[in-house]
Computed example of a mutant assay.
Amino acid sequence: MKSITIPALYCPFESKINNHLASTEQHTNNWIRQFKLHEGADFEKFLGDNFAYMTARFYPEASEKNLWLANDINCLLFVMDDAMDNQVDRADMIKTRNSLLEFIDKCNAILHHPETYTGPDTGVFTALHDVWIRLMAISTPEWQQHFIESLQMMFQAAVWEFDNVAAGKIPTVPEFYNTRQFLGAAHISTDMISVIEEVNISRELLNHPTVHELTVLARNAVCWANDLFSLTKELEHGDKHNMVIIVKEERQTDLQSAIRETVMIHDKDIQRFVTLANELPGVDPDNADLRKYIRILSAILIGNIDWSSAETKRYNFEFVRA
């Protein structure tokens, strides 16, 4: 299928990249081989995805070992998401609803009782156990509980999508707007900021309406951009859980009009993010950790566009030339 043409996205943030990119790429390539998450031609495709560039842009101020961990987690999440995302050729481990639920149960057992895990030396579950042990070593019990809850939201969204596909149902625009952040784990990327970037920000502050809205806006904007970037692939896979496709179906419009409307949704969320970040109603604008948190959210927003448009072979699209 020929590449999709997308209008330029509004994202007025400075592009940054972590100095530990090269060592992170080497580390994760070895980690992927160790746990056999990609092999043969699949490993060559993985190399073309260039996930280390994405992670280095998402967390530009992280320490080397923290960036290694973040990239391992991101690559593992992409393995999981790709398995669940392909509606034409689902991976064996989640081919049926029961096998999907069994997969989720095994993940939950590792998260809740990592000390009892006795799985094989390789594979998704062993890789999950490895990153979870490493995450636990640098995080608080409170953060760990929140992270487990966030993964449950990702799993619940996967079941929701599976059931929709089985029933031949396409969600409405409002339904998808409220759920999309949990499909593909955009919320995990923002949850990891406090640990990977060592931002000392309290749960109380993260739950403040202003900060919470900033976080959700960032997650959603990444998702709308991703829906645009991955549109070619998802049309080929028959995946209709994509804002462009949902807008097209609901509005009964053509594909290019749906693309333009999705760009408008993205840009509106970014504009709201910029306004909130500048004004910060109800919170201390001089809080250094909050300012860093917002800075990293901004890095994720622009980093997703930079990586998707220039540094990965994962997507097939072109921006409209001015």
Rank of each mutant, 00 (worst) to 15 (best):
F125K: 01
I148G: 05
A221M: 15
W160V: 10
A158S: 13
G184Q: 09
M136V: 11
I104P: 01
M192T: 09
K95M: 04
W132C: 02
F147Q: 10
R203W: 06
I148Q: 09
T172S: 15
N178D: 15
L128C: 03
V211N: 12
H208T: 09
V199L: 07
E161T: 10
I201H: 07
V222Q: 13
S189M: 11
I170C: 11
R97H: 07
Q145C: 03
A157P: 05
S194F: 02
I193C: 11
L111H: 00
R97V: 06
T140V: 08
V211R: 06
E102W: 03
W224H: 13
E197M: 08
P120S: 08
E204K: 08
E204Y: 01
L228Y: 13
A186Y: 15
E161F: 04
A109M: 02
M154F: 11
T232E: 15
L205R: 01
I104G: 01
T172Y: 09
V222F: 10
T122S: 02
W224Q: 09
A185L: 14
Q156D: 14
I170A: 08
L205S: 07
P174I: 06
L151S: 04
K106F: 02
E115I: 06
K95D: 07
W224A: 07
A218R: 09
N226P: 10
T179W: 14
E198A: 11
D130E: 04
S139G: 08
T179P: 01
E213L: 11
I193M: 15
L100P: 01
D191H: 10
P141V: 10
N220R: 14
I94F: 04
V159Q: 05
S139T: 13
I196R: 05
E197T: 06
N164V: 08
K169E: 11
I148H: 01
G184C: 08
K95W: 02
P120V: 00
V165D: 14
G184I: 07
H208E: 13
G123F: 00
N108S: 08
F182N: 12
